Computed example of a mutant assay.
Amino acid sequence: MLIDSHCHLDFEALAADIEGVMARAAAAGVTGMVTISTWVDKFSTYADIAERFPNVWCSVGTHPHNADQELHIQTEDLVRLSAHPRCIAIGEAGLDYFYDNAPREAQEIGLRRHIAAARITRLPLVIHSRQADDDMAAILEEETGQGAFPFVLHCFTAGMDLAQRALALGGYISFSGIITFKNAKEIQDVAAMVPADRYLVETDAPYLAPIPHRGQSNEPSFVRHTAEKVAEIRGVTLEQVGRESTANFGRLFAKSGVK
């Protein structure tokens, strides 16, 4: 049993064949997935998908690429929308210094508003962090000092320092198909180190398809390849990774009801 903790079922590559996507996921042993918000103003789209499929949940949040275009979204908006019964997380929000598609100031403002919403609702914050390790760690430590909140560093691509600092704050780390790439040694080292009760697996579909599907459109069924690689790295069975990652998902995303 596996859960894809982060995908984008509203994106055209998946939405155009949603029934096939769901069937292939079920055949691969993927029992649930979270379709992640990138625009708060499109929340109804994510909620509709989650309402349509009983094993799909959604989140509410603004991707850092879009931060400057949703500065009108306030913490109270996130809190209000997150009350939807199928919404189990805040985000994704964070810092992306690789693309810098939005001004860094806007990204930080958005991130802090999402943190406040996670603190109020106790729903986990799904964090996007790319080439922003120092600033992300500093913000997480500062904000946790003002009151703890649940969070996961999704699609982890950072270094050991951010991983250890996030874990020290009670955070979780989620691994995507990137972990199967040959040049992912540092991420693999983090996967070997992370405690058994603090990791998740995901696809970030339709992006970042794992080996042996690299270059193709990614989809939730492919999370099995990521889980297999995590099992190899940790020296355990795929079944154990399935049990641990699913239990971790249920603990972090408690509103899902997964045990």
Rank of each mutant, 00 (worst) to 15 (best):
I3R: 02
F11R: 12
A13Y: 01
L14E: 09
L14R: 03
I18P: 01
M22V: 13
M22N: 05
R24I: 08
A26H: 13
G29R: 02
M33Y: 03
M33G: 06
V34E: 01
S37P: 00
S37Y: 05
T38R: 06
F43Y: 15
D48V: 01
I49C: 13
V56H: 08
T62G: 12
P64D: 10
D68T: 04
L81E: 05
S82Q: 00
H84A: 08
D96Y: 07
D96H: 03
F98G: 00
Y99R: 15
P103M: 06
E108V: 15
L111E: 03
I120H: 11
T121F: 07
A137D: 11
A137T: 03
E143W: 09
G145K: 08
G145P: 12
V152I: 09
G159W: 07
L162S: 03
F175I: 09
G177Y: 10
T180D: 08
N183V: 07
A184R: 09
D189S: 13
V190F: 11
R214W: 06
Q216K: 15
E219N: 05
S221C: 14
F222C: 02
V223R: 06
T226N: 00
A227W: 02
I233D: 11
L238A: 14
E239S: 09
T246E: 04
N248I: 11
R251A: 14
F253Y: 13
G257M: 11
